[in-house]
């Protein structure tokens, strides 16, 4: 292999992996913006997306195009249900308590998934062919293109939603200042529910597109959540573009680290870079230190 092709291959791999981190990070951001909390159950939304898709397509034999929206809808239902049961009824909870509740939620969702789908990894066929596409000596799977496509679609829809629709603008208002938003007549609690729905949907999409490549089992969400959290922080909490850039960056760093330095320490390399960035820019790459100061936690 030519050394240029090798580098290109590392970058392709990194982008493919990183686009998943980016999607998970986007999910974190939406809930963070509305509530100020990190939802530790975000990884479970990803896992559920993949699992529902598997059941719908293999057990129920639904065509993928039909199963896809149903799977997303089911995860949204779980996300909204979780928010309604465990978070909505609380009066002025602290950020740490909310985070603990999401940790408990993730344990519960994981437990139910274990009984529903068993402990072995489940498998989903690729959306289109499995024949790799060759590009300047490096290869990429059609499924990787699906992942990138989904990331692009999610980004476009979110940009449209937050900039062009009234509800989206209301959610942004909550993110900037909850009290002011309440004063102008926005139902902040409804916005919180909506943020859970939205980030559950994004998680589900991510879960569905990666399952053919990574297989899915009930405890798969934890690692994806951890990486996504890293991406959200690196990009600057609350920043959409930050999440995408940082997700891809972490993916590429891991891949280059594994290729050129040591696969034993590849995750550590990405983390060292993350820490380095935080020491220089304590609010992440694209985060604002000013906004950060206004947040409770």
């Amino acid at each position: 292999m030519h050394s240029f092709s090798i580098t290109l291959q590392y970058i392709f791999t990194g982008i493919a992996v990183g686009s998943i981190y980016a999607m998970v990070a986007l999910g974190f951001n939406i809930i963070y913006n509305c509530t100020g909390i990190i939802n530790f159950a975000q990884g479970e939304f990803v896992m559920l997306g993949g699992m529902f898709m598997i059941t719908l397509t293999t057990t129920w034999k639904l065509p993928s195009l039909v199963a896809f929206p149903i799977a997303v809808a089911l995860v949204v239902l779980v996300g909204v249900g979780f928010e309604r049961i465990a978070i909505h009824p609380l009066k002025s909870p602290s950020v740490l308590v909310l985070i603990m509740i999401t940790i408990a939620g993730s344990i519960l969702i994981k437990g139910v998934a274990m009984f529903a789908w068993g402990k072995e990894p489940c498998y989903l066929p690729h959306f289109s062919s499995e024949t790799p596409i060759n590009f300047l000596g490096a290869t990429i799977l059609p499924q990787n293109l699906w992942i990138l496509g989904c990331l692009a679609a999610v980004v476009i829809v979110l940009a449209w939603f937050f900039n062009r629709t009234l509800v989206g603008k209301a959610m942004r208002a909550c993110a900037h200042n909850r009290d002011a938003a309440r004063l102008v007549g926005i139902n902040v609690k409804q916005m919180v529910t909506l943020s859970f729905a939205l980030s559950a949907a994004i998680g589900a999409v991510a879960g569905i597109v990666i399952t053919p490549i990574i297989l899915m089992d009930y405890q798969r969400g934890a690692m994806l959540a951890l990486k996504g959290f890293g991406a959200a922080i690196l990009g600057g909490l609350g920043s959409g573009p930050g999440a995408v850039v940082a997700g891809l960056l972490i993916g590429v760093l891991e891949s280059l680290g594994a290729g050129y330095i040591s696969s034993h320490y590849k995750d550590a390399i990405a983390l060292v870079v993350l820490l380095g960035v935080l020491f220089i820019r304590p609010a992440g790459l694209l985060g604002s230190a000013e906004i950060q100061r206004l947040k409770k936690f």
Binding site: Y32, I38, V95, L226, F229, G230, I233, L237, H264, Y265, D267, A268, L271, V272, L274, L275, L278, F279, P282, A283, G284, Q292, K295, F297
Partner: peptide, 20 residues
């Protein structure tokens, strides 16, 4: 010097580095 979630991530990351 970091605050809130950034401090959480930084400490989580350091823990992971030690674990690795």
């Amino acid at each position: 010097k970091l605050r809130g979630h950034y401090l959480a991530m930084a400490t989580l990351g350091l823990g992971e580095i030690v674990y690795i």
